[in-house]
Lab assay of single mutants.
Amino acid sequence: MQIFVKTLTGKTITLEVEPSDTIENVKAKIQDKEGIPPDQQRLIFNGKQLEDGRTLSDYNIQKDSTLHLVLR
């Protein structure tokens, strides 16, 4: 499925993911596309910070959902 990740600069990254993917996996995909190390990434969905060990389906993230990427 496709999800979107919006950065603070207003750029939107499109990712191909599975609901069973962990947040860690998603961060690795963002690193592949953008070169941002996962330990600098914080992903936010519906105002909640997403934890590495959880999956997209844990957070009820579905296709065409938009996550927000904050760098630390």
Rank of each mutant, 00 (worst) to 15 (best):
M1T: 02
M1K: 15
M1Q: 08
M1V: 12
Q2Y: 06
Q2E: 11
Q2F: 12
Q2G: 09
Q2D: 11
I3M: 11
I3Y: 00
I3S: 00
I3L: 05
F4M: 03
V5W: 01
V5M: 05
K6Y: 09
T7R: 11
T7Q: 02
L8V: 08
L8H: 12
T9V: 15
T9G: 07
T9H: 07
T9N: 06
G10Q: 08
G10F: 02
G10S: 04
K11L: 07
K11P: 09
K11W: 08
K11G: 07
K11T: 12
T12G: 11
I13V: 13
I13W: 10
I13K: 02
T14E: 07
L15Y: 04
L15W: 01
L15S: 01
V17G: 10
V17H: 08
V17Q: 10
E18G: 03
P19H: 13
S20E: 08
S20I: 14
D21L: 08
D21N: 14
T22K: 12
T22S: 03
I23K: 01
I23Q: 12
E24A: 02
N25V: 13
N25Y: 11
N25E: 11
N25R: 13
A28K: 10
K29I: 12
I30L: 08
I30M: 05
I30Q: 00
Q31M: 06
Q31Y: 13
Q31W: 09
D32G: 11
D32A: 14
E34F: 05
E34I: 15
E34S: 10
G35P: 03
G35D: 04
G35V: 02
I36D: 05
I36A: 05
P37R: 14
P37L: 15
P37W: 06
P37T: 10
P37K: 15
P38D: 11
Q40R: 14
Q40V: 06
Q41D: 01
Q41T: 05
Q41W: 05
L43N: 00
L43Y: 09
L43K: 00
L43M: 06
I44R: 07
I44H: 12
I44G: 14
I44K: 06
I44M: 13
F45N: 05
N46F: 04
N46G: 07
N46D: 05
G47V: 06
G47H: 14
K48Q: 09
K48T: 15
K48N: 07
Q49E: 13
L50P: 01
L50Y: 01
L50R: 00
E51T: 02
E51D: 07
D52L: 09
D52A: 05
D52R: 06
D52H: 10
G53L: 13
G53S: 06
R54Q: 12
R54A: 05
R54F: 14
T55F: 05
T55L: 10
T55R: 13
T55Y: 13
L56D: 00
L56G: 01
S57E: 10
S57A: 09
S57I: 15
D58V: 10
D58L: 06
Y59T: 02
Y59M: 06
Y59Q: 03
N60Y: 08
N60Q: 04
I61G: 00
I61D: 00
I61Y: 01
Q62E: 11
Q62L: 11
K63L: 12
K63R: 09
D64I: 04
D64L: 04
D64M: 04
S65W: 05
T66K: 03
T66A: 04
L67P: 01
H68F: 03
H68G: 03
H68P: 01
L69G: 01
L69H: 01
L69A: 02
V70F: 13
V70I: 15
L71M: 08
R72L: 04
